[in-house]
């Protein structure tokens, strides 16, 4: 459903576009192949919204870190007119490419600011980017002829995958690459990530994991169906809160004690650092005596590596290795 619905190569027009595309891609260290220069209109359905991109975008704007990093991983920085909203720093491997792209705002830019950039494609990780706190309704941008795209994991609830899987994330790489006419780059990226996941996931089998995202009163834990569950599943561990609906859910320490996790994932975010979480656990009258806390069986994951994107593989590797490393 989220793969390209139709591929058409509009021959005469695309010759001109191909020349432009070829020029635009010359600063790129990956070779601009014939596949990238023969791109025609791409039509697909994204979050239930039909999106048609008549030619590979040349002035794309990304919002949210995952979308930005997927673009950089596909070597598309030369097609980016702007970017906004990082949770932390972009991956070091992409820092040089990122530096070439203008940063429009610390969080979401205003609609006016984005109009001023005159983008031809707007790509965000979360539907909130296209809300009033962000740049306004997707439909308005589509009417202006600006293509829009939201990560499957960030779609509004009714069009989100019922249970997010790594394949949904990999499909996003493929769709974005298709839109920009660089399909073969996605295949290389996907093959690399699949290989890395396969290499680590066998060792972690069955370890029972609490994924603690945030909150001290009612801990917000990774639930059945979002990116935390996806990463735990890919790493081969068992989520102690797999019975809760949604991506994250507020639960209680009493239940955590009862379910007694073997390993605790501490999400590290600027607003709720892993070190503070660890200190809380080790000072808490009850939690300090949990076997996992006593033995300091923690795995620290950056928040940015847990929203659907190219970093998920890092989280999978860290979780699987962390669990394997502490033994079980």
């Amino acid at each position: 459903m989220r793969s390209p619905v139709s591929w058409r190569v509009a021959a005469p027009l695309s010759v001109l576009l191909a020349l432009l595309g070829g020029c635009a891609a010359t600063g790129d260290n990956k070779p601009a192949t014939t596949a990238s220069t023969s791109a025609g209109p791409v039509a697909l359905t994204n979050c239930g919204t039909p999106v048609t991109v008549t030619k590979p975008p040349a002035r794309a704007v990304t919002m949210n870190q995952s979308a930005t990093e997927i673009m950089l991983a596909l070597g598309l920085q030369d097609r980016m007119a702007g970017t906004a909203y990082l949770d932390d720093q972009v991956l070091p491997a992409y820092a040089a490419a990122y530096a070439k792209v203008p940063v429009l705002a610390k969080e979401y830019p205003s609609k006016e600011k984005l109009l001023d950039i005159a983008p031809d494609f707007v790509y965000a990780s979360f539907a909130s980017a296209f809300s009033d706190e962000g740049v306004g309704d997707r439909a308005d941008w589509q009417k202006l002829g600006v293509g829009t795209y939201v990560s499957a994991a960030g779609c509004p609830k009714d069009t989100r995958p019922a249970k997010l899987a790594m394949d949904d994330v990999l499909a996003e790489f493929r769709e974005i690459a298709a839109i920009f006419g660089v399909g073969e780059r996605a295949e290389a990226l996907i093959a690399d990530q699949q290989e890395r996941i396969a290499k680590v996931s066998a060792g972690a089998k069955g370890t029972r994991v609490l994924w603690w995202d945030a909150g001290n009163d009612a801990p917000s834990a990774g639930a059945c169906c979002g990116s935390p569950a996806m990463i735990m599943s890919a790493a081969g561990v068992t989520n102690i809160f797999a019975d809760l609906n949604g991506s994250w859910a507020d639960t209680s320490w009493e239940t955590v004690v009862e379910r007694n996790p073997g390993v605790i994932v501490l999400i590290d975010a600027s607003w709720d650092p892993a070190a503070a979480k660890q200190a809380f656990l080790e000072k808490h009258a009850t939690l300090k005596d949990l076997p996992a806390v006593k033995a300091k069986r923690y795995v620290v994951l950056d928040f940015s590596s847990t929203s659907a994107g190219v970093r998920n593989v890092l989280a999978v590797e860290a979780l699987a290795r962390g669990v394997g490393g502490v033994g079980n």
Binding site: D87, S128, D213, A214, G215, N216, D217, A218, S220, D250, S252, W253, A269, S270, W271, D272, A285, F303
Partner: peptide
């Protein structure tokens, strides 16, 4: 200043919770 995720735990506390009651 807040991130949506930080806002979530603030909202929980603002709505009233006895989860932090201890001796």
């Amino acid at each position: 200043a807040a991130d949506p995720h930080a806002t979530q735990s603030i909202t929980f506390w603002l709505s009233g919770s006895l989860a932090r009651a201890d001796w």
